[in-house]
């Protein structure tokens, strides 16, 4: 039994996901080192100061534009892309899945809805390409990235901005707008890292987004008359409890802190209201935002790890295809039952 049970993304999508992740992390680290400068001054210093960070942020921004345009063209010119439009349209099922998830949390439902299921196991056919959260991620990313790209380009092109808004104040306001907009994505990505890194069946990483669908077996040998997902057949990793709880706490602290800071640190480049530096509140906020940055760093590491797993998976498949006798013999011992 494999736990890679519903890899449904193509190689294009998995590669795109990895590149997008790298680019978005670069934008987060540079952008919020500027916006939350009071709390992430060390990050700014580490990356070479204001001038260098702004340059890297713009470079990564260009990378983002290239990625987004590539994605839109792919979705328009290919059959696979066009058929995926139908897959991302939210349906009644998705609302049901969310409601059932809340019930599941409260212990009033026995299992998660297929549209919420990350581990589908024996019932992998029932699970859609994207869960209700996945669809939300696609929509929010689409809206957010568009607005971020537009506002980012306007900030960059001073003459372009001045054309519409004649004052420097307006330019400042656009910087504020741009930074506040990114907060939604920043919080969403922290949740995304928790959701796909700390599911007990996939811990420490759900490989769905890294191993292309061509390399995932379509069915299990033993799923003919199985009942349920078969999650009870899997062993829990011994470190899961501790690590998942720790990450849960860190993610909650990170999200709460950047949300609070987005209100307090609004008036970039100078706060709207002066607050005492070094006050307990400020100290807590500093710790919390740094916790959030740590969560992002964990996400970056997990994304790289996903590609390591993919390489191993590719090699194992190739070895099995080339010569079953020459491999380690693991198949023989696992055939005992």
């Amino acid at each position: 039994m494999t736990n890679l049970d519903h890899g449904k993304f193509t190689r294009m999508t998995t590669t795109f996901h990895s590149l997008l992740a790298l680019d978005v992390f670069a934008l987060f680290f540079t952008g919020y080192a500027l916006m939350f400068n009071d709390h992430l001054w060390w990050l700014l210093v580490l990356m070479g100061g204001n001038v260098g960070v702004v340059a890297v942020h713009r470079l990564a921004g260009l990378g983002l534009i290239a990625l987004v345009v590539f994605w839109m063209v792919m979705m328009l010119i290919t059959d696979t892309g066009r058929s995926n439009f139908r897959e991302i349209v939210p349906t009644r099922e998705d609302v049901d899945a969310f409601v059932q998830d809340v019930k599941f949390m409260l212990g009033r439902a026995d299992e998660r809805h297929p549209n919420a299921r990350q581990f589908a196991g024996y019932e992998s056919d029932e699970v859609p390409l994207l869960s209700y959260v996945g669809k939300g991620v696609v929509f929010i990313f689409a809206i957010e990235l568009t607005l971020l790209v537009v506002s980012g380009l306007l900030i960059w092109s001073k003459s372009g901005l001045m054309q519409y808004f004649a004052t420097r104040t307006a330019a400042m306001a656009f910087v504020v707008f741009h930074g506040l907009l990114g907060i939604i994505m920043l919080m969403g990505v922290m949740f995304h890292i928790f959701e796909h890194g700390f599911h007990p069946a996939f811990y420490p990483l759900e490989t769905k987004a890294f191993i292309p669908r061509r390399m995932i077996p379509e069915s299990h040998a033993d799923d003919a008359d199985a009942d349920g997902t078969g999650i009870e057949e899997l062993s829990l990793a011994s470190s899961w409890n501790k690590v998942a709880n720790l990450m849960g706490v860190l993610v909650v602290i990170g999200i709460t802190s950047v949300m609070t800071a987005s209100i307090v640190d609004e008036g970039y480049p100078v706060p709207r209201e002066l607050h005492l530096e070094g006050s307990p509140f400020d100290l807590l906020l500093t710790i919390g935002i740094n916790v959030g940055i740590f969560v992002l760093f964990v996400g970056l590491v997990l994304s790289l790890y996903g590609n390591v797993v993919r390489r191993r998976w590719e090699r194992q498949l190739r070895e099995e295809r080339e010569g079953p006798a020459a491999t380690d013999g693991g198949d023989v011992s696992s055939a005992e039952d």
């Binding site: 599941f104 949390m105 949740f191 928790f194 007990p200 069946a201 999650i231």
Partner: peptide
């Protein structure tokens, strides 16, 4: 959503075989 998933993960983990 974090809390929903956190709780769901804990319930799912309880269904799995212990370490």
């Amino acid at each position: 959503l974090v809390f929903v998933h956190w709780a769901a993960f804990r319930r799912l983990a309880a269904q799995m075989r212990p370490p």
